[in-house]
Structures are given as structure tokens and as C-alpha cells.
Amino acid sequence: MANNQYFEIITTDGKTLKYQIITAFKLASTGKYYIVFTDNLEQKTINIYAANYDPDDDTKFESIQTEAEWQIIKDQVNKIFQKTHINLKKENF
């Protein structure tokens, strides 16, 4: 996780929503910036959201366009969760 970092989104109707960042990265192949975030990390089923952002433009926040990009995002998330997962050692059986 990005060190338990949060960010806020202000909606067009004036609400401020807070989300926890799972990861953020830039893809060399697309040149785009991606942010992956959640609003319920402590729950059994975690909601994962993702979007494109622009470091220079606070108003730019767009949906992920292609399946290939989604697959990369899922791979990134899985890697992060695998690092934090507690594995039961097989020799206990």
C-alpha cells in the first residue's frame, strides 16, 4: 500500500469523499498515470477502483479505457496483496 495514504475527491455537487490509495504508478507503454484505491480496506470483500489522473491537472480523473490496462492493474494489486498475505506453512499438515 502507499504507506496508508489517502486522497480526496470533490464531486460536482460539493461532496468530499475520502479514499485509501492502494497503489499509483505510471505506465511507460501508455504514458498515463494510474491510481488504484478503495473505500473499505478492512472489509472481507474489498472494493477496488481505478482511474487515470494527471499530476498537473487536478480536474482530470478518467476511467480506465482498455482491458489490457485493467489486467495490468489487477496484476499490480495481486502483487501487493500477496506481499501482505499471511501464508500457513504446508508442513503443518
Binding site: 460536482t12 499509483a24 477496488i48 477502483y49 480536474t59 500477496q82 501482505t84
Partner: peptide
Amino acid sequence: ADVAFYYRDLTPRKVAKVKLPPEL
């Protein structure tokens, strides 16, 4: 690794402004 449900649609939908941490 964990239970994860991916929301493909942009969430939230009507974004006016994003306040990102300085590092991003």
C-alpha cells in the same frame, strides 16, 4: 491474495477536483 471486487465504471462519477498527496 484477497477478496477483491473491481468496479470498472469510474467511481465516483461526477468528479470536480482531485486532491492528491504531493508525492503523486
